Simulated scan of single mutants.
Amino acid sequence: GYFVEILSLDSPDALYIKDCPVKVHAAGPGTGSYGYSRKFIVWLLKHHQEYDVFVVNGIWQYHSFAARNVLNKVNRNYYIFTHGMLDPWFKHQYRLKHLKKLLYWRWGEYPVLRDAKRVFFTSEDEKILSRQTFSLYHCRETVVNYGTSGHQGNASDQRQLFLEHFPHLKNKPYLLYLSRIHPKKGVDLLIEAFAKSVNADSDLQLVIAGPDQTDWKVELDKIAEKYGISHKITWPGMLKGDIKWGAYLNAEAFVLPSHQENFGIVVAEALSCSLPVLISNKVNIWQEIIRDNAGLASDDNLAGTIDLLRRWQQLDASRQNQIRENARNCFLQRFEITRASANLLNIFEKDLAAIKN
């Protein structure tokens, strides 16, 4: 069998550490946004012999730099997930921040990737895009399955729970956006595209669910008011648990016109609920979605988002139902967590066997 433990830069007093179902060794709190903590290195030097495999999650913070330094010193291999953090979108969108990263790259983060046994990417698109951010770039690239457990619970009860909280949506079709309310996600495009592609007399509604971390909703409300569709938009805030699943299960389709999305757990969750996904071609799993006929994809601009919504509405009922069936199959074949886990374990076992031989 296998066991998994986490070494993190969190404070050991954090409540979420106590609630985590996996054993966590909290070596923080780290200092500042970078998260420096000497305790992290001390712990890893002391305990590394207790583990067979080391997986670093994410870059640009102290944990990846420290893990590379310690594990190289003791001659241990490690793997790393970049989780989309090398996407060139950030380079073009946040130029000053990229300049800061450029100064750190050569001596800080680049050696972390260069020395890793493998750098894991969750799609071919992510792998290819990651090569475009820095001119100095070399690593052992491996595309792996990535996923989630998907829908859990009683679907009928979850549908009812959602409609109890939002009774005005009962018997009304709606498109669901469920993610952070953030400019990167293209919510402004979605609202304007909805206004320009949905007939005024249509019953179709738009549900925009998620936390507003940048106070952007005020501006988005003005866009909705400008086009006279405020009455067609529901803002439930952040949804969790059964009510979240109810939002998926009652929806007609899921929409995410994001400008940058490495994987999109919410896309996989939607698929697990047999929900067609209407996404931009900046969501890095869009090609898999199209290949499995589990949804539609288009450019991450206004014209592309309008096209996305219009094409969905123009499909007849039988075609939409076929896509719903394909959506669930796409999830089971590509993004269900046990398949993703088996894929990773197979890689680890082969690499460990090669070392022993």
Rank of each mutant, 00 (worst) to 15 (best):
L163E: 05
L102W: 13
K18R: 14
L71G: 02
L176D: 01
K46P: 02
L136R: 12
A224P: 05
G153F: 08
H168N: 11
R118W: 07
Q160S: 15
R291P: 00
F348S: 01
T305A: 08
H138D: 14
K91A: 07
L161T: 07
S130G: 06
Y62C: 03
R319L: 11
F162G: 01
K23I: 09
Y78E: 03
A327G: 00
I306L: 06
W286S: 00
G295K: 10
V24N: 10
T142K: 15
L315D: 01
G241F: 10
F254T: 02
I279W: 05
D13I: 09
I337L: 13
L344V: 05
I208K: 11
S33A: 14
L15T: 11
V187R: 04
F331C: 03
N281V: 00
D201W: 03
H48C: 11
L136T: 10
K172Q: 15
E164H: 12
R118S: 09
N357V: 12
K184V: 15
E124W: 05
S202P: 07
R131M: 11
L99N: 06
I208A: 07
Y248S: 00
V24G: 10
P88Q: 08
P21K: 03
Q205V: 03
K117T: 04
L249H: 10
Y16S: 13
N57C: 13
Y248L: 01
E252D: 14
S149I: 13
V56R: 00
L220H: 07
K91P: 04
F254R: 11
R319W: 02
A116N: 06
K39G: 10
H151V: 05
V53W: 03
W286A: 00
E219V: 09
Y227V: 07
L175K: 10
N346Y: 09
E252S: 14
F40A: 06
F162D: 00
T82H: 00
I290K: 15
L296K: 09
I59T: 06
F194G: 10
H25N: 15
R68Y: 07
I80Q: 02
L352H: 08
D19M: 13
H48M: 05
L189F: 14
L278S: 00
D316N: 15
G186M: 01
F348V: 06
K101D: 04
A200T: 13
G32F: 11
N72P: 01
A66C: 12
F254P: 01
S130D: 08
A247H: 10
K196N: 13
G304H: 07
Y36H: 14
N154W: 03
S258D: 06
I323Q: 00
K240M: 13
S130Y: 04
W216N: 13
H48E: 14
D212T: 11
E50K: 15
G150S: 09
G241V: 09
F162V: 05
L206W: 01
I279R: 03
K46Q: 14
G210D: 12
H83N: 14
S135Y: 08
Y51N: 01
Q260W: 03
R339P: 01
